[in-house]
Write a protein that binds this DNA or RNA. Structure first.
Length: 567
RNA sequence: GCGUCCGUAGCUCAAUUGGAUAGAGUUUCGGACUUCGGAUCCGACGGUUAUAGGUUCGAAUCCUAUCGGGCGCACCA
């Protein structure tokens, strides 16, 4: 239900009827307080200023033109010229009843679907996935699910790091150690990488050999490529294991590795040179952008290419061959300058048409309790697979603590809760700020956590285990709480739309939290199955509960979090 | 040094993009209930939005300066 845009249209029409010229977009806000109604329109003051008229007078002229039958129950002018809007109970009743059996719980589709590329996860093939990949993987996956649900055509891209100096190093070390060890799984590859790195740092001769191997791979040496392919396969299998545990929907089909763009790199340089965007400086091919003395190097003095070059090639591929309308990079905030530069160059060189939206979906660093970057006790990076396993173990312990356990599949529930807690904790804060990782906080049943939502869902399911009849009759809005609850349920689409436009998953979690607290209050005060509740009231409340459960489930599903019927 | 992002309750975070008396959770204290799942609900305490100016009907949000912090800056990705 697109409530805000409906209200915008009503205001727009009222402005026209009142003969008040306006070319501003009509932005409807949620009311800041319950006594100000359900929604408010604050644009009159700005409008009045332009027209040099009294804002309250104009506001009064406008509300005279707003019909108070159907959707709107009441409108008022308040303060310097706010227009407060109350929705009618009858309308809420009709609308919420209408979406009960809708699998999309009333959520429509975007008016103009776009083809959207979402670049996320992007693990390095030389190492195991660590906590640094967590945020990109789950924010990106949520964004992909969300946009697809709203009707965009989503293309996921996993830009894995499978090229460059490190692989020369690995292969050189493998050759040195003997090829027998080439069948090892990634657990060993991690150690293998460390050993190779030590060798690389201590021996100049080995480092030179490693660099030679890089050139060999790039020139297509069959033997080297074969060894390289083994590393990649082993590494990808490990990633897939992590994605599986994490519930992230990336497959091999989504992989467009760095090496994929290899053939396109020389053309990038030609394109830049032919338009005089790049110049040679100190032997390297450089782009100097306005306002900065330090250039972006696109080709090294030795002829090698850099990650800016690869990113430019990827941008062109995505814009021209994949025909994207919007390209989202879910990457660490520290790379914001890099993306700003690459986006500027790509547009300047017409590698990407002006109309294509390029967005860096930046996110902050994961911190530990003391506010330092998240590391293991000995200062190493925390492996993602270990973190997820620990989450499940801790969730299991939390579940066991509670009394009156129902019959449940402990492993399944612990997985849903543990993984859900990790994901929810991350998704529920503004992605741009750094994020404090705390087991205690994320595995709490109190506050804005996955467990609180999952608990609420389980409670609702419990109602329907007790009540086995059919649902019928209308949703009746009997009091203020039911009014707010029904409205909240209908706000689901507006919430998702905002989250999609701004790429902010925390908009969804904030909504779910508000919905669930509202439901808990409603449930506390308005008995459903207790003695003495009138049949029509019971039916109405059952349906509100059912709808709430469906919205919680769908909302969590978009966030990639599972619900369970019993905890 | 240059650039960039940030500074909100003791702690963790919001604030619909310039709107009304800055909201939640947590902690602490108090309360409800012979529990439709009490892992619940209600209330209280807690703020000069880092500081100082400015812009205007109106600023946590925009501008300027200062203080404090994160991050990035020529051949790694």
């Amino acid at each position: 239900m697109k409530i805000k845009s409906q209200l915008s249209q009503i205001i727009q029409a009222a402005l026209e009827r009142a003969d008040i010229p306006s070319d501003e977009e009509i932005i409807i806000s949620d009311a800041s307080k319950p006594e100000f109604g359900d929604y408010q329109f604050n644009g009159i003051m700005k409008l009045a200023k332009q027209l040099k008229k009294n804002p309250r007078e104009i506001a009064n002229q406008v509300i005279e033109q707003i019909p108070t039958e159907g959707m709107i129950a009441k409108v008022e002018v308040a303060g310097p010229g706010f227009i407060n809007i109350w929705l009618s109970n009858a309308w809420l009743s009709d609308q919420s009843s209408a979406i009960l059996d809708d699998t999309r719980v009333g959520v429509g589709y975007v008016e103009q679907p776009e083809k959207v590329i979402i670049d996320y996860s992007g693990p390095n093939m030389a190492k195991q996935m660590h906590v640094g990949h967590l945020r990109s993987s789950i924010i990106g996956d949520t964004l992909a699910t969300l946009l697809a649900f709203l009707g965009d055509e989503v293309i996921r891209q996993n830009h894995i790091g499978d090229w460059g100096t490190q692989f020369g190093m690995l292969i050189a070390y493998l050759e040195e150690q003997g090829t027998d060890s080439s069948h090892q799984e990634l657990k060993d590859l991690e150690q293998f990488y460390k050993d190779a790195k030590v060798r690389f740092d201590e021996s100049e001769a080995f480092a030179d050999t490693a660099r030679e191997y890089v050139v060999k791979i790039q020139q297509g040496d069959t033997h080297c490529l074969q060894l390289w392919q083994q590393f990649i396969d082993s590494s990808l299998r490990h990633c897939e294991e992590v994605y599986e545990k994490l519930g992230v929907n990336l497959t091999r089909d989504d992989v467009r590795a760095e090496s994929f763009y290899n053939d396109r790199l020389p053309a990038v340089i030609t394109t830049l040179q032919s338009q005089n965007i790049s110049t040679t400086s100190e032997g390297a091919e450089c782009v100097f952008l306005e306002g900065s003395d330090t250039p972006i190097i696109v080709q090294k003095g030795d002829g090698g290419y850099l990650y800016s070059t690869t990113d430019l090639a990827a941008l062109e591929y995505r814009a021209k061959e994949l025909q994207a309308d919007r390209i989202c990079y879910v990457v660490d905030a520290r790379q914001s300058e890099h993306f700003r530069q690459v986006f500027t160059i790509a547009k300047k060189a017409k590698m990407v048409p002006e109309s294509v939206k390029l967005e860096h979906i930046a996110f902050g660093t994961m911190m530990d309790k003391s506010g330092k970057p998240f590391k293991t006790r000995d200062g190493g990076t925390v492996k993602l697979i270990d973190l997820l396993d620990e989450a499940v173990v801790r969730a299991k312990a939390t579940i066991k603590e509670r009394e009156n356990q129902e019959e449940i599949d402990l492993d399944h529930v612990a997985t849903a809760l543990g993984i859900g807690a990790v994901k929810y904790a991350d998704l529920s804060i503004n992605r741009e700020s750094n994020y404090l990782f705390s087991w205690d906080k994320m595995l709490s049943f109190d506050g804005n956590t996955a467990l609180y939502m999952q608990y609420a869902y389980a409670r609702i399911q419990s109602i329907f285990r007790k009540y086995e009849g059919e649902l019928s009759g209308a949703i009746i809005i009997g009091d203020e709480l039911e009014h707010r609850l029904a409205l909240m349920l209908l706000k689901f689409e507006d919430t998702l739309t905002k989250a999609a436009v701004e790429a902010t998953p925390h908009t969804i979690t904030a909504y779910l939290y508000e919905l669930v607290t509202l439901f808990m209050k409603f449930y506390e005060q308005n008995p459903i199955l207790k003695e003495g509740v009138e049949e029509s009231t019971k039916m109405s409340r059952l349906q509100l509960a059912s709808l709430t459960g469906k919205v919680i489930k769908k909302g969590l599903e978009i966030l990639g979090i599972e619900v369970v019927d019993k905890i």
